[in-house]
Computed example of a mutant assay.
Amino acid sequence: MEADFAEYLDEFARRDWETLDPDAVTDPVRVAVVGLGWFARDWALPGIARSAYTEATVVTDIDDDAVEAVAAERDLTGVTPDEFRSGAAADAYDAVYVATPNATHLEYVEAAAEQEKAVLCEKPLEATLDRARRLVAACRDADVPLMVGYRMQTDPAVRRLRELLDAGVAGDVIGVHATMSQTMLGELGGEADQWRLDPELSGGCALMDLGVYPLNTTRFVLGADPVRVSGRTQTNHEAFAGVDEHATFRLEFPGGVDALCSVSQNAQHASRLEVTGTDARLILDPAFYEREDRGFAVVRDGTRVDVDFDQVHQIEEEFAYFGHQLLAGEPFHPDGEHALADARALDGIYESAETGRPVDLGDGDAA
C-alpha cells in the first residue's frame, strides 16, 4: 500500500506553487492589515512576518487603543479607518489584508481597489451574496488582484490529499464527510467575538464562520463545484438568538458525489475531512483549525497508514503564496470568482434551511 502513494508524499511540505527563490527576495510585498482582532494579532501578523515574500507596514482598526498598541509593538504605522480609506498612508503599502467583520469587508476592499492595491480578503467574502458580488466587481473594475483567504488551499496536507485523489489512489470518489465544531464562546474568548452573534455583521454564525471550511476544502480537493445544496440550521441557546448555532448541509457534486457536512459553534471541538473512494479512504483529522497540527491518514483494505510529516504555520503559507504570486506576476487560485461559488452555495443552504427544499445552483452567474 505504501509504495502506491509514497511518491506523492515525498517532501510532504513542499510548495508546489513556488518558482521564486525566497532567499533572494529583497523587496517583499508591503501589507496593510485592516482589522486587529485576535486572529490578525495572533496569527496573521506573525504569518506575514514569517513569510519571506511579505512584510506588514500599516495597521488600522476601529479600536484606537489596539492600533496604538500593535503599531508600537511591531514598529508599524498606525492609521484610523478614515485615514486608511482616504489613502493617507497608501505610499507605505502595496497590498491590503482585510480581516474585519464580514459585513465590513466591502467598504475596505473598495477603498483598496480605488488605491489600486492588491487585496487579500478574509472568507466568507461578505455577509450577503449581493455584497460579495459587489466586492468582486470592485476589484475587477479597478483591475486589481483579489485573493480570498482560504488558507486550507495552501496547507500541504490538503494539497497532498488533492494530489492523491487526482492520481486515483482512492479510486472513484463516492462521498465526503466533514465536520467542524467548537465552543465558540469559550475557545474564542467570549465577549471578544460578539460580532459573530450579530446577523447584520456576520450574515450568520455556524454556517458562515465554520461551514465555509468544509465547503471550500471539499471543492478544492475534488476540483469541482456543487450543483445542488440542501441544509438545516438549529439554534438552541439564547446566546445564539438571531443566528445559527449549528448547521448540517449536503453538497451535491457532478457525477453523483455528495458531501455531508456538520458545523457547530457550541459543541465539542472537532475538525475532520474524510474522502471515501472505491479503493481507499483519505482522512484529515484534525483538519481545519490553524491552532492545531493536521493529521493525515490513508486507509485501504483494513490497513491504515498515518503519515508523519513536518507541520507548517498555515498563515505563513497563505501569505507566502499571496506575496509570491504578486511578485511572480502569477494569478491566485482562490480568487474572487472562486469565492463567489462559495457565497452562492452558502446562500442556497440558508434558503434550503428556510424552505425545507434543495436549491439548484446551476452554473452560477457573473460577479
Rank of each mutant, 00 (worst) to 15 (best):
R30A: 14
I349F: 09
L346Y: 04
S51V: 08
T77R: 09
V212T: 08
I283H: 03
L197R: 10
S181M: 01
E11N: 13
L129W: 07
F220A: 05
D82F: 02
Q194E: 11
A99W: 06
A71D: 07
A89Q: 06
G190W: 10
D365N: 05
E292M: 04
E187V: 05
H333E: 11
A69Y: 08
V212F: 08
E7I: 08
E292F: 02
D285L: 06
H313M: 04
V212G: 03
T104F: 15
V109G: 00
L36F: 07
D10G: 01
L273E: 06
V275S: 03
C139H: 02
R85S: 12
A224I: 04
T154I: 09
Q265P: 00
T26V: 08
G302T: 07
D363K: 08
T57D: 04
A157Q: 12
A280T: 06
T19C: 06
E122Y: 09
R304P: 01
Y97C: 12
A71G: 12
N102F: 11
R151G: 13
A241E: 15
D63P: 05
M184D: 06
A328I: 06
R344S: 06
V312I: 13
P199G: 02
T104D: 07
A6P: 01
T80K: 10
L146K: 05
F309T: 09
V257L: 00
Y350R: 14
P286D: 10
V144C: 05
T276Q: 05
A32T: 01
Y53M: 05
R134Y: 00
T100G: 00
S352P: 12
D258I: 04
V307N: 07
V275Y: 03
G175C: 02
A137E: 15
T26W: 09
P199R: 03
P81A: 05
D130W: 01
D293H: 09
G356Y: 08
W17F: 14
I48V: 14
F39R: 11
L197E: 11
H246M: 00
G231M: 09
L188T: 03
A49R: 14
A178K: 07
Y93A: 10
A320D: 14
L188P: 00
S202E: 06
V96R: 03
R357W: 08
A178C: 04
D363I: 02
T54C: 15
R151D: 11
R357T: 12
T183N: 14
A6I: 11
F249R: 00
E122D: 15
V59P: 04
Y213K: 11
C205Y: 09
L165C: 12
A345I: 03
Q153D: 08
A367H: 11
A49Q: 15
A49L: 02
D365L: 07
E107C: 02
